[in-house]
Computed example of a mutant assay.
Amino acid sequence: MQECISVPWSLPDELIAMAPGAIAPALVDTSAEVKTTAIGTHAICEYLEKAHPNPRLLPFVANECAEARRLWRWSEDSFAEVNATLLTERVNQWVRRSSDTDTASLRAGVHALKSKMTFLNGLAETRAYMAGRALTMADLSIAAHLSAYDYFGDVPWDVTPDLKAWYSRIKSRPSFRPLLNDKVDGTRPAKHYADLDF
């Protein structure tokens, strides 16, 4: 039904041909009445929300929808710093087998991640889900980022117990569990990575 094209750290020819300036991830829906291409995280999620609204991941109620969109955008923007430092360095170490460790990037990434987790733990203390009472796009975006860092064992769960409890609930959802079986070639995830009661 949908075809996702996302080759990490490279731009495949099919992606470049889709649209000027196209970047991964991209989705091509050939089951739609008109073949549809959505490029980039927000375009994909917005398209799926309109084309396949069940389950709904952006609330109907205006203020709840605004909060979900705010935190979804916050997640994409805020974690970019961690991706550019900590995650990039882990990829260089484990996937590309780089012999030169950039300790400054690791330190900057760890520090940035801790500050984000403090904020998120505050939300998890008072809310069932990040944006309020129901699971939204904000939860999935935040959980996806944390999952990438947790794969390498870089998330200090011991300092954010409420966030850890929230993430345990998210990773226990049937829709999220298959992600925990994914492996990055040449690496092994942290021992607790796929453990639902870590």
Rank of each mutant, 00 (worst) to 15 (best):
M1E: 13
Q2F: 14
C4T: 15
I5R: 09
S6R: 06
S6E: 12
W9C: 06
D13K: 11
I16E: 13
I16K: 15
A19K: 13
A19W: 07
A19H: 15
H42E: 15
C45R: 11
Y47A: 04
Y47P: 02
L48P: 01
P59G: 01
P59S: 02
F60N: 10
V61L: 13
N63P: 01
A66W: 00
R69S: 00
L71Q: 00
S75T: 05
E81P: 04
N83G: 12
T88V: 04
Q93T: 13
Q93V: 12
W94T: 07
R96N: 12
S99F: 08
A104Q: 13
L106A: 11
G109K: 01
L113E: 06
S115G: 12
S115M: 15
M117Q: 09
A128I: 10
Y129R: 03
G132I: 11
A143N: 04
H145S: 11
A148G: 06
G153E: 08
V155K: 05
W157E: 08
W157H: 07
D158Y: 13
P161Y: 05
P161V: 01
K164G: 04
W166G: 00
S168V: 12
K171F: 05
S172Y: 11
S172W: 10
S172N: 14
P174F: 03
P178A: 02
D182H: 06
D182C: 09
D185P: 03
G186I: 02
R188P: 00
K191I: 11
H192C: 02
D195V: 04
D197H: 12
